[in-house]
Design a binder for these strands. Sequence first.
DNA 1: GTCTATAGGTAGATAGAC
DNA 2: GTCTATCTACCTATAGAC
Lengths: 210, 210
Amino acid sequence: MDHPQPAPTRGRIVQVASRLFAEHGYHGTSMRDIAAAAGIRPASLYNHFPGKEDILLAVGHRYFATMWPALRAASEHPGGPLDRLLALISAATEVGRNHRYEHQALVGEMRLIRRTPALAPLVESGLACIALWHETIAVGQRDGVLRDDVVPAAATWLIFTAITGLVDQGHRSDVLGDPAVRTVSALCAVLVDGLRHPNTRTGTPALVGA
Amino acid sequence: MDHPQPAPTRGRIVQVASRLFAEHGYHGTSMRDIAAAAGIRPASLYNHFPGKEDILLAVGHRYFATMWPALRAASEHPGGPLDRLLALISAATEVGRNHRYEHQALVGEMRLIRRTPALAPLVESGLACIALWHETIAVGQRDGVLRDDVVPAAATWLIFTAITGLVDQGHRSDVLGDPAVRTVSALCAVLVDGLRHPNTRTGTPALVGA
DNA sequence: GTCTATAGGTAGATAGAC
DNA sequence: GTCTATCTACCTATAGAC
């Protein structure tokens, strides 16, 4: 291996930066804040990252390193496009919950990411994920099981923001001891029912996966 | 009248600040940026606002001054809870589109707003609006026309973020000359269909309002 | 790889002339 | 009400000892 052991400090920096970016935003978080949360001096951050932007880039890399394979696997789920769509929702929700701060940080800084050339890799990764959703939905529309008066991009956006809300809310639910699985089930029911073609409705679909 | 004519400069400041906050975030926008966009010197901002927070507060006030009466009227729409829900979606979408930057700025700075005591009035206004959604949805569930396995808060969040996406996307659609009304219709169809009680479905509901 | 010290720039906000 | 000039504090980033 060329990377025998990544320095634990670097990982800790990315971890605390994710949380701070999620809670206070990129511009609302200073290198001093990150250093203090990581238990080192501000100057030491520059032994691990060339600059602040590169920390956000690392946050995104860590996120997509988990999200991309999960979505990829879900998009190849056996069954019809409806099964694959449910698998995608389950996978994205689970990864989003397990990487809550990274998810929130990236969603909250979407405009900044699109605007900053150095963060272009994150845009690429995001587009690759979105393509999986689009294709699954498009196939569902072609097969007649999904309504075709909603463009795949709009359906994807609707699902994605719903998951973002779940990720957010999930934190509070976890604190209150409420198993969030029921919420995922409800989300799937509402969205997939709503997106289904009116002629093919048979009732509330069962929960798939997590 | 105690306020015979609000200085046009103050309104211009709020207007450009809305756009800057929406595009770059609160912390990503400096008083210098706002002053430059408003065509004045930074120091002159302080003749209209005590500080930066108060500009964000004014952005929120302007937003809710339109949103609150619109939702209020929609929630008293004649007909059943389903009609009122469609009226709420139409009203919120229209106001959100007409106050795009204010909407995006407030949504993007939700955490900051909740955290900052000086911005508490915005939290109160937001809660008042949310209460209208909750009540309408709760009545719909009691009447059996809306599925009751989704708590009103989750349904409200789902609708709200969908509208936020529409407000965002609406800008691009407008630029491309695509009438966004069709999108609102599709949004209503998907969400209301999905939220409907499975036993009461009769097909895609018609577009209401705008 | 972490530290102290600090550079160079920008932030929000103020003083006071006009 | 707008301006010029400026204050103080904080920002990202660097230099160089250990």
